[in-house]
Computed example of a mutant assay.
Amino acid sequence: MTFFSRHNIEKSSYEKLYYRYNHEIFTCIANKIENRDDVLDVMQEVYIHLWKFREKILIGNAENIIFNTCKQEISKFYRRTDKEPYSEELTYDRADNSINELKAAKKKDRRLTELERSIELIIPPLRKTIFKMSKIEGISHEQIASQLNMSKSAVENQIAKAMTFLKKHHSNS
């Protein structure tokens, strides 16, 4: 294989890589750097680095190499410009809120389960059907009234009663 044919194969593979990951690279950098011109400058540095080491990329895990290169170039950008990082993820001294986030997610999940249980077990069957059709399935009040052969105001009344009950029953949760 001659130098030129190997070079063309590498160039073709690199171009495929470019088109495959261009949007992800832009997004990755834009999440860390606010100014669009700076984002484009860092992207250019990423592509230069990737071109220099294209043989390793084409052989190894391209995605890992690409996103590690993005992180390195973002760090270089901040060191070079003496700017503060735009994204919180680059700030290493921030408090770890994962426990609080987990507790909040569990509490929300528990409340949702209680709400679903109330809908299923406590609300009368017709009211439950109307409520689910409206709030969960997104069916209009007119369509529900037509399907259940009742007036639109009766449908609205049933939904209001269900909402009132759920608000009262779950306000203390």
Rank of each mutant, 00 (worst) to 15 (best):
I136V: 12
A95Y: 05
Y14G: 00
R20H: 10
Y19H: 14
I130P: 00
I122R: 08
I33Y: 10
T113Y: 13
S140G: 04
I119A: 04
T69K: 01
I65D: 01
E89Q: 14
E101Q: 12
E24L: 14
E55P: 07
Y92E: 15
S5E: 13
E63A: 09
A95F: 03
L121R: 11
V155K: 00
E89F: 02
N22V: 08
T91Q: 14
N149G: 01
A104D: 14
R94T: 15
E55T: 15
N35R: 11
N149C: 02
Q147P: 00
E142T: 12
E55M: 12
S5L: 11
K168D: 10
I57P: 00
L17D: 02
I48Q: 06
F4C: 02
Y86S: 08
N68H: 08
E73W: 03
T2H: 10
I136L: 09
F77A: 02
T81Y: 06
E15Q: 09
Y86H: 14
N61E: 09
K11T: 12
V155R: 00
I144Q: 00
F67I: 03
D41P: 07
G60V: 00
C28Y: 15
D41Q: 12
V46H: 08
N149A: 02
H141Y: 14
K103Q: 13
N64E: 04
L148H: 03
Y14L: 11
K132H: 12
I59Q: 09
F4L: 09
R127A: 11
L166A: 08
H23D: 07
T164Y: 05
S134G: 03
N100E: 13
D38K: 06
K56H: 04
D109K: 15
K106C: 03
L115D: 01
S13E: 09
I139V: 09
H23M: 05
Y86G: 10
S13T: 02
Q72A: 07
I122E: 14
Y14F: 15
I57C: 09
I66P: 01
I48N: 12
S140F: 05
R80F: 06
Q147I: 01
D37E: 13
M163A: 13
N97A: 04
I48K: 11
I144F: 01
I33S: 07
K135F: 04
L166F: 08
T113C: 13
N35T: 06
I136G: 05
